[in-house]
Deep mutational scan, measured.
Amino acid sequence: TTIHVGDLTLKYDNPKKAYEIAKKLAKKYNLTVTIKNGKITVT
């Protein structure tokens, strides 16, 4: 599972963990989490 945050690309083997991290990042920086085709993007 890949999380895209701006220019950063973070890879995680565990999709659930990746989603949790994405949610935390989104909350911290007041951003939105988008999931599309298995890719998690924080914008």
Rank of each mutant, 00 (worst) to 15 (best):
T34Q: 11
L10W: 06
V5T: 02
V42Y: 03
T1D: 05
T1K: 05
T9G: 04
K27Q: 10
I35F: 08
I21F: 15
Y29R: 01
K39E: 15
L25H: 00
L10S: 02
N30D: 06
T2A: 07
D7E: 12
V33P: 00
T34M: 11
A26C: 07
L31C: 08
H4N: 08
G6Y: 08
G38F: 07
K24E: 07
K23M: 15
T41L: 14
Y12G: 03
E20R: 13
G6P: 03
T43H: 13
T1S: 10
H4R: 13
G6S: 04
L31R: 01
A26S: 05
T34G: 04
K24R: 13
T2K: 05
P15C: 12
K23I: 14
Y19D: 02
K27L: 11
I21R: 04
K39A: 13
P15N: 06
N30E: 03
I40F: 05
T1E: 03
K16I: 12
A18M: 04
I21D: 03
N30K: 09
K36Y: 11
N14L: 05
T34S: 10
Y12N: 02
G6D: 04
K24L: 14
I3N: 02
K28T: 06
H4E: 09
I35E: 04
A26R: 05
Y29G: 01
T2H: 07
V42N: 01
K28C: 10
I40W: 04
A22I: 08
D13N: 09
Y29F: 11
I21G: 03
Y19W: 15
L8N: 03
G6A: 05
I40M: 05
V5M: 11
D7I: 12
D7F: 14
N14Q: 05
K24V: 09
Y19R: 06
L31K: 01
K36S: 13
L10R: 04
T41G: 02
I21T: 06
T43A: 13
I40N: 01
V5N: 02
K27Y: 08
K39N: 13
K11S: 13
G38S: 08
I3K: 02
Y12A: 06
T9C: 14
I35R: 06
P15L: 14
K17E: 11
I40H: 01
T9V: 15
I40V: 05
T2S: 08
V42S: 01
I35L: 10
A26W: 05
V42D: 00
G38I: 03
T41H: 14
A18I: 04
T41M: 14
T43Y: 13
D13K: 10
K27N: 06
T1F: 13
I40R: 01
Y12K: 01
N37W: 11
K16S: 10
V42A: 04
N14D: 15
L8W: 10
G6H: 09
V42E: 01
L25G: 00
T43W: 12
I40L: 08
A22T: 02
T34F: 11
E20W: 15
V33Q: 00
G38W: 06
N37V: 08
I40P: 00
Y12F: 15
T1I: 14
D7C: 15
A26Y: 03
T32A: 08
V42P: 00
I3P: 02
T41R: 07
L31H: 02
P15A: 12
K11N: 12
D13T: 08
H4T: 15
V42G: 01
N37C: 09
H4K: 12
K11R: 13
T41C: 10
K36A: 13
L31D: 00
T41N: 08
K39F: 14
P15M: 13
I21W: 11
T34A: 08
A26N: 01
